[in-house]
C-alpha cells in the first residue's frame, strides 16, 4: 500500500471569544508524517486550536487547510480523516467499550478492522473489560479507551489533547509506544504542557507567541 501523505496548513488562524483574543494570526504547516507539539500555559488556547483544526469549532478568522495526497479534503469528509483524543470527549456510558467503538465505526460508515481493535484493547490492557459498560470504568481506563477511539478508523491526522492525563506511569509508557509507532503513518499533533509528552515532538508550536 502506498504511503499516505497528509498535509495541514494553518493560515492566519485567529480565535476571539466575546472580546478576549485567545490567539491570533497563527501560521504554521505540518507537511510530513511525524509528531508535532502545541504548547502554552493554561488558557493560551491549546484545546481551542486543536478543536479548530478538527473542525469542531470555526476560527474567528483565518483558515485551516487539510490535504491528503495533495488533494484538499472537504469539510464533509474531514471527520473520517481525523482521530481525536481530548479531555472533553465523552463516551456513551450506558454502552460497553466495544459497543461504543462499534457504534462510532458504523456511524462513520467505516468497516471494523477487528484485528486492529483487538490489538489496541490488548495493548492498552482493556481486553478483559471491553464488554463492561463505560460507566464502570475509572478515569484512567476511559483515557485508554479514548486512544482506541482515536485510532479505530486509522486516521491520517491524529490529534492528542493532553494525551497522558489520568494515566499511571505504565499507561503513559504504553501511550508513548503506540504514538511513536503511528508517527510513521500519520501526522500527530500533541497539545500538552507535560515535558515528557512534548519530548516526543520533532517541533513545538508555542501559543504564547500568538497572543
Amino acid at each position: 500500500m502506498d504511503k499516505i501523505h497528509y498535509s495541514l496548513q494553518l493560515q492566519d488562524v485567529t480565535k476571539i471569544y466575546s472580546r478576549r483574543t485567545i490567539f491570533k494570526n497563527i501560521n504554521a504547516g505540518f507537511h510530513s508524517n511525524g509528531i508535532y507539539g502545541i504548547a502554552g500555559s493554561n488558557g493560551t488556547g491549546k484545546s481551542t486550536l486543536v478543536k479548530a483544526i478538527a473542525n469542531i469549532i470555526s476560527p474567528t478568522s483565518g483558515k485551516v487547510h487539510h490535504q491528503k495526497n495533495n488533494v484538499m479534503i472537504e469539510e464533509q469528509h474531514l471527520h473520517n480523516e481525523v482521530g481525536f483524543l481530548s479531555p472533553y470527549f465523552v463516551f456513551y456510558e450506558e454502552f460497553s467499550a466495544e459497543e461504543n467503538i462499534d457504534i462510532f465505526l458504523k456511524i462513520r460508515g467505516i468497516e471494523k478492522n477487528s484485528g486492529l481493535i483487538d490489538t489496541l484493547f490488548d495493548r492498552l490492557v482493556l481486553n478483559k473489560r471491553r464488554g463492561d459498560a463505560v460507566k464502570t470504568y475509572s478515569s484512567g481506563m476511559k483515557q485508554r479507551l479514548k486512544l482506541i477511539f482515536a485510532l479505530s478508523h486509522t486516521p491520517s491526522l491524529l490529534i492528542l489533547d493532553e494525551p497522558t492525563s489520568n494515566l499511571d506511569d505504565a499507561g503513559k509508557e504504553q501511550f508513548y509506544g503506540i504514538i511513536k509507532e503511528y508517527a510513521d503513518k500519520s501526522v500527530i499533533l500533541v497539545a500538552s504542557n507535560e515535558k515528557n509528552d512534548l519530548a516526543l515532538c520533532s517541533s513545538v508550536l508555542n501559543l504564547e507567541e500568538y497572543k
Partner: peptide
C-alpha cells in the same frame, strides 16, 4: 447534557446527525 455533542461532531458530518 451528557456531554456527547463533541463525540457526534467527531464521528459524523452535520447532515448525517440531523438526518439521524
Amino acid at each position: 447534557e451528557r456531554g456527547t455533542t463533541m463525540t457526534l461532531q467527531l464521528i459524523a458530518n452535520p447532515d448525517t446527525i440531523l438526518g439521524g
